[in-house]
Nucleic acid binder design. Structure first.
Lengths: 342, 342
DNA sequence: TTGTATGCGTTATCAT
DNA sequence: ATGATAACGCATACAA
């Protein structure tokens, strides 16, 4: 017979206990807690006192069970943790979401879930932990999303793959137009052999930026064959750059589909002894901190990532509030930011 | 009178509905869901079928209310998002925690909470959302922790400030010993005027690394006055490096209390035209990706951050399982990793 | 304005 | 092995 070593934790106070101390009914305490106006000043005072005295905090599970809502939303990121932490783009998105959520009493659940079987994530979401979901970095294969949409409102960061799904809500930029601007810059500064390091071709952002690139070169009758695919990581981009340089050594301008990838390209270029922008001009995408953290400040297509996060959260909150006229697509502007690399 | 535009979401199936379909009682379904062995094969089969058919997922709120546990733990980081995403140290910690949690059926709630009033975080935690908490980057002023410990098991990453709190569980390295090793390296390679960029002096990690630095220099009768405090950010370290260089231009070796800060110092050194390690040798701390991402690979004091995260989660899980003989302090080893900067 | 009663979807304690 | 039935802590429709 052993004694319990762990310090005994006092039971959390309940509504009922507060009611008893304040000498009122549970319902009244509930009203006070939920800020109902229909409560007399004296009772309000005594209940408030009792709450302070007991250090009462409402139990979420009970509240959620009774009210059928959780006051929480999830941010689902179908990527592994390394990518999530490695790309400042995600930091900006989270920042924006957080900024919006702080104005409400919703909390955010981060679900970075690729090593995790998607199935587990879906289970978690569907088990009533959150009222709605935000999804970024959505890949074509992620069909679990469809199922998710049947059980709660969902807002995407970046147009989802199945564009036919007209019911989807998303916040995005015109990726193709952004790519056109970025590519055009390379043409404007006189580059004649222009290549591209693309994002994953299973993501609309990757596809659209590539097609903007191709379209621009075709318009001026330049070859658009110096293209290598990568995965939005610096190391993936480095490898792609090596391939590109091997296949097409005369390249003098590269449109890279993200700033983080551009840093990888920069490293390889340095390794090969090519100066930037002298020998090779580089245009990135995102205008994330990665654009200015390296030795060569990047010329880049700026997208308002933080604002996009904010907008995503805002739309989801409106959806949850039952707002009927929320726009399905929110397109935000891009602009070219000129720095040193092109 | 307007019609509802939002797609009607079918109600989530409940235990009761499954029971009805399977032709058994709720209790039996519950047993199946929770993997009880005491259920006959035929019934197990029919219930399993019904669950699949209805696509049933247990409701967390109800389960948590009845069982009085949530199967979730929180990682509390009292820093702002920028710092959280900016320092690879946190990525490693989260990685380790996740790796451990994936082996259990606990989920992780990330709470990065400095802009957020600490109060709000505490409320969230105390409202029964999690069974236990992990806390990293704990500052001296964070007294909210004490209150948290009264309501759930808590494990710290890094020794908490109030070391008198003998009841606390934590995972750490011997920061002072690590600093000794790092500083000694600078002495060993012949540096005669050695300075340090420290972490925040309201954190044990900052204090201990500083005292290791000081102790080492005093032992060889070198002055330990070339010290500037910073905040574990690259920009903070850059500013501190400028101060240091201004005050003590003859410095030829710097012990920097984190790799991320070392990258900031490196930038300033380059700006001042000092070569590394030629003019100034640099030793960092952490051995995080920041140590190898820049142009000059850093010699650094390596700590097993990912393993520390894993250990933290492991300890918390054991605590939650009622394990009585979990060690209060877990100290992990550091080692000097030699690269180019010193 | 306040209180009473019922239900939210589970788990757990009893019977059987 | 299975089934009633009582909590769990709260919100809410309804009654007073």
């Amino acid at each position: 017979m052993t004694s319990i070593v762990r310090p005994a934790r006092p039971p959390q106070p309940t509504l009922e206990m507060v009611a008893e101390v304040a000498g009122v009914s549970r319902a009244t305490v509930s009203r006070v807690v939920n800020g109902s106006t229909k409560v007399s000043p004296e009772i309000l005072a005594s209940v408030t006192t009792a709450i302070k005295e007991l250090n009462y905090v409402p139990n979420r599970a009970a509240r959620s069970l009774a009210s059928r809502q959780t006051q929480a939303v999830a941010l689902v990121v179908p990527e592994d943790l390394t990518r999530f932490f490695g790309d400042p783009y995600f930091a900006a998105i989270v920042q924006g979401i957080t900024r919006r959520l702080e104005q409400s009493d919703f909390t955010l659940n981060l679900m970075v879930a690729s090593s995790d079987p998607r199935h587990k994530t879906l289970r978690y979401l569907r088990s009533g932990n959150v009222d709605g979901a935000l999804i970024v970095s959505h890949h074509a294969g992620d069909e679990f999303v469809a199922e998710l949409e049947t059980s709660m409102p969902v807002v995407f960061g970046g147009r989802p793959s199945n564009a036919d799904d007209l019911g989807a809500y998303f916040v995005d930029v015109d990726n193709e137009a952004g790519a056109v601007t970025g590519t055009q810059r390379l043409i404007d500064i006189g580059r004649r052999r222009i290549g591209s390091i693309t994002g994953p071709i299973d993501m609309p952002a990757g596809i659209d930026r590539l097609s903007g690139f191709v379209r621009t070169l075709e318009r001026v009758e330049m070859p658009a064959d110096a293209v290598e695919h990568a995965d939005f990581t610096a190391s993936g981009a480095a490898a792609a750059t090596r391939r590109l340089l091997g296949r097409c050594p005369e390249v003098d301008g590269i449109f890279v589909a993200s700033d983080l990838m551009a840093t990888g390209a920069l490293d390889v270029l340095r390794e090969y002894g090519r100066s930037v922008p002298g020998d090779v001009a580089i245009v990135g995408y995102d205008d994330s901190p990665a654009a200015t953290s390296g030795p060569i400040p990047l010329t880049t297509v700026s997208q308002p990532s933080e604002e996009m996060g904010y907008a995503m959260a805002d739309i989801l909150l409106r959806l949850l509030a039952g707002d009927e006229k929320v726009p399905h697509r929110t397109i935000m502007p891009t602009r070219l930011v000129l720095r040193d690399s092109a």
